[in-house]
Amino acid sequence: MITEKRGKKIKFNDGSEIYLEDFFNSNYLRFNSFAYNYLSDKNESEDVVQDAFISFWEQKKTFSNLISVKAYFYTSIRNMCLNRIKHDLVKQKYFQESQQKMESTEFFLEGILRKEANGIIFNEINKLPQMEKKVLLLSLKEYSNEQISNELDIKINTVKTHKSRAYQVLRKRLGNIIFMMLTLNKSFFNRITN
């Protein structure tokens, strides 16, 4: 396993490098979930991402750094997805309404931003101890503490402890903070411009 992994590396112009396998592991889920934005089909998304990796490896292009490899992947996955939709009559029927949106740059860039953010959140959630993770996922599904305690067969107080620990990972206060800043800034700016 290790020797095989040693064999294949992505090398960058500045002389640094990364194992192809590590790159695959840290980006596969993001890329898939990005392709799913376009195709709404898990199998097809996986196909596209596989094809993207194969053609990337075969082309032997050089890149200046890790971010530019990722940018290359996002761009080619997007193109491959749009191509598929264009050439598939059955799909075209499903996607007729959303096609214009999907071809837009905004959709593309927002997709990238979301998937990169969600990829990190996904990893952080998976780092949690098993129970905390379960509690967090259920409470994201809007389960009440009581429902969680029934579901996982633990005491309500234990639910609360797990929950508060898990929530330290996710910045849940955020919603309020943003709202406050929004209103503050607006009045602040108004005063200045006036």
């Binding site: 971010i67 940018a71 996002y74 761009t75 593309f108 860039l109 990238i112 931003l113």
Partner: peptide, 8 residues
Amino acid sequence: PHESILLG
């Protein structure tokens, strides 16, 4: 896309 990746 570079900017979006970093910001994301």
